[in-house]
Amino acid sequence: MNELKRIMLVEDSARDVELTLAALEEHNLANEVIVTRDGAEALDYLYRRGSFATRGPGNPAVILLDIKMPKVDGLEVLRHLKADSSLNMIPVVMLTSSREEKDLIESYRLGVNAYVVKPVDFDKFVKVVSELGLFWAVINETPPGSIKQRN
């Protein structure tokens, strides 16, 4: 069986988290999903500080990052990640409702690995999320230092 890699979801909306997890669940990808509810928490996790200070080492195989979040928004998180040499190899996928061009441009400028707009239609949403999870957590070879867990 495939190695299942850890997916990190940064999403402030609980509904979206639920829907996303539901979508991942459909393909049995939900086991190793770390959910943080805003940018600050995400950074805490990645830097192993605050409430995550005690977690084990290792980076997620992919970060699914929402843009519009309280405290620290997605673009800011992205900027931090890509500016830090210890974290900038982690693939980051923007998973957002925004079709705004400026968000798209800014994200790519900061070095995002993919940009996905959450479809309104649930079927499509499930398909998109599961494909994302499949690709990044299963198919894609992760950079060194990622947490791996045998299924």
């Binding site: 979206d16 829907l19 843009i67 957002t96 409702s97 309104v120």
Partner: peptide, 20 residues
Amino acid sequence: YSVSHDLRAPLRHINGFMEL
């Protein structure tokens, strides 16, 4: 911006949860 982001999120939720 709000429309594109914030209005669609509930819509998506409606859709998603309707499906569920």
